[in-house]
Design a protein around this nucleic acid. Structure first.
Lengths: 164, 164
DNA sequence: TGACACTCGTTGCAAGTGAAACGATATTGC
DNA sequence: GCAATATCGTTTCACTTGCAACGAGTGTCA
């Protein structure tokens, strides 16, 4: 039992602090060296898996609000890292795809990002790593059952590539 | 080995997603009902443990940049939830303290926040909870040894109340 | 065919943010 | 005692953010 509310023992706070610290460290790999923001990085990474996607697709997959995706894509297009084209099937949609420069940039950044992740995980045995992910998953499950919690995006649930 | 970079399996991303989802859920306890922002909430909570503190103190303890603390305190003062007074010992410092209204607000919010945390943890045994914290701590340790990582704030290390 | 509801991506707006610069106060070294 | 330096909290500036509203395109159903 806790006699006094202590922020530093409050799980949501601890998660926020750890997450922010990790994010900042990883960001060095794409922000400092290559001038990318978090949304831009997420969009690029998502594009590396999906040839052509719409803003909505990205929004659903990488936990970014629609306007954030739209603006990130606009900046990436200005930097010639992605191409935008009106979809032929549905003229409301936009087909977003990596340019050659975008692909090259990713090829340079991804290994750095993975290296940071590897370093992070270096203190954990493989069993520990699985345990950590499993425990995080368990927290998600509670939120999945909570009607007042934000819905989880499709991709984060394990769907590999979206709908057929 | 990973043949393709998959954001949804990237630990920093997973941490960010979980943390944000948890934060949003907790925020319902103080944002929706009582109109507080995250920085304001952190400041209030910190004040509940320390009678009188400076902006710097708060900055060091709750992972908020100095300007963010300053502005949060200004808003809280406008809402009559905290008092600001020039320190007598050092005229550069500001003594920030809870008003009676601030204390009452916290008394109303804290149980809600704890309830959310309890619900979150309800899926985990006590052993699991300890394991989760321990694994998170292990990730912090790696960053502690990384010169390019952000430094950890004093309070998050376990120092209960700051310097003598 | 036409009216209605819906979805798409974008944009306007008000608010929040971080980095750097600021005035004011304290401290240090001579 | 006094200049130089450091620290405090605030503010300025450019930028990002989220929400809501928007115009444009699509689907639905009579």
């Amino acid at each position: 039992m806790r006699d006094q509310f202590d922020l530093s023992e409050f799980l949501p706070y601890r998660l926020a602090v750890l997450s922010e610290r990790v994010s900042k460290r990883v960001a060095l790999a794409y922000s400092e060296s290559h001038g990318l923001t978090v949304p831009e990085w997420r969009v690029l990474v998502h594009l590396s898996r999906c040839r052509q996607v719409s803003v909505r697709e990205i929004h659903n997959c990488v936990n970014l609000e629609k306007p954030r995706v739209s603006r990130a894509v606009a900046r990436l297009e200005a930097a010639r890292l992605v191409d935008k084209a009106e979809s032929q099937q549905d003229h409301r949609l936009v087909d977003i795809s990596l340019t050659e420069a975008g692909r090259k940039l990713l090829d340079a950044i991804v290994p750095e990002a993975l290296a940071v992740e590897q370093r992070l995980l270096s203190g954990l045995s493989e069993g520990d790593q699985e345990r950590l992910l499993e425990l995080m998953e368990r927290l998600h499950s509670v939120l999945d059952a909570d009607p007042r919690a934000a819905k989880r995006s499709r991709m984060d649930l394990g769907d590999s590539d979206g709908p057929a």
